[in-house]
Design a protein around this nucleic acid. Structure first.
Length: 289
DNA sequence: ATGGTTGCGCTGCAA
């Protein structure tokens, strides 16, 4: 089962990149963030085409800002927008979270508040939001994957220049403590310890070209899911070329569960990775430069 | 070149 997460920075603007990417990478479950659409607009824009590609979908958005979705062709059950106890900002519960059970895994598509500046009300909101999410996830199913734009770089290795980020959001102790507090496995970092791996590069000043980025899009899973990881990588190709998002997708391949109880409901059609009997799965591609 | 981009939506704000 292939799970991907991608902050698309407006799904309407990203349709020319998203649809070919779905056909090329063929993820079974896709978490999207910053769709910036209402539920009705998302269905109007993509419903027919996603159906044609074999995806069911659940979207949660109010238009203009935020907006999250889960696409799945391995089941989409118990869809839940928001989470228990999700804090408000300016009197509104923003559309930043949706969860569903897909192929036996409780999948969350998350767009964590940015925090803006340290000590601002938005920063406090970000911390409270992460605290409440942790409490909600703790009461949920054991086989879990938190996927999305966490807006936190878990360690200094996850930013291009730690000195440049001192005093900035995304790298502070309180934010990092809250990511660690989930007690989940950061599967890309576990697979690539010590590698320079980023998922976000500012549009300005040729940051992507110079590989001056941050790793803030994460897949955090229970150990039960992490033990099934065959590959975990950042799809930098999707950040290249014309009209990209400022974020690249993160892609995670899971082998079937050892006891078979949480494997994919259906095998992925025409998987580009050949799975001959007795043939070892290939290593994930190195995060290229 | 003394900033640099993009998206939303129409004026500046968010990222």
């Amino acid at each position: 089962m292939r799970i991907a997460t991608w902050n698309v920075n407006s799904v309407r603007m990203r349709v020319p990149r998203l649809l070919p990417w779905l056909q090329q990478r063929r993820p079974d479950v896709v978490c999207l963030q910053e769709t910036k659409l209402s539920d009705a607009a998302f269905a109007d824009l993509l419903g027919e085409q996603l159906d044609g590609l074999g995806y069911r979908f659940a979207h949660h958005g109010h238009g203009q800002w935020n907006g999250v979705a889960i696409l799945s062709r391995v089941g989409l059950d118990e869809v839940t927008p928001d989470f228990e106890g999700q804090p408000e900002y300016a009197g509104v519960v923003e559309a930043r979270a949706i969860s569903a059970t897909c192929g036996g895994v409780r999948v969350h598509s998350l767009y964590v508040p940015n925090g803006r500046t340290v000590g601002s009300d938005h920063y406090d909101y970000k911390l409270a939001w992460l605290d409440a999410l942790r409490a909600a996830v703790a009461t949920g199913p054991a086989h879990v994957a938190l996927c999305g734009d966490m807006n936190v770089a878990p360690a200094d290795a996850d930013v291009f220049d730690p000195a440049a980020y001192i005093g900035q959001t995304h790298v502070t102790g309180p934010e990092r403590d809250r990511i660690a507090a989930f007690g989940l496995v950061d599967v890309v970092r576990e697979r690539w310890p010590g590698e320079r791996v980023f998922t976000y590069w500012d549009y300005r000043a040729g940051m992507f070209h110079k590989d001056l980025g941050m790793r803030i899009d994460l897949v955090l899973t229970s150990r039960s899911v992490a033990d099934r990881v065959a590959a975990a990588w950042v799809d930098r190709q999707a950040r290249k070329g014309s009209g990209p998002s400022d974020h690249a997708p993160v892609i995670v391949d899971l082998d079937s569960a050892p006891d078979g109880d949480i494997g994919p409901v259906v095998p992925p059609p025409s998987n580009p990775v050949k799975r001959g009997r007795g043939v070892r799965l290939p290593q994930a591609p190195r995060p290229d430069k």
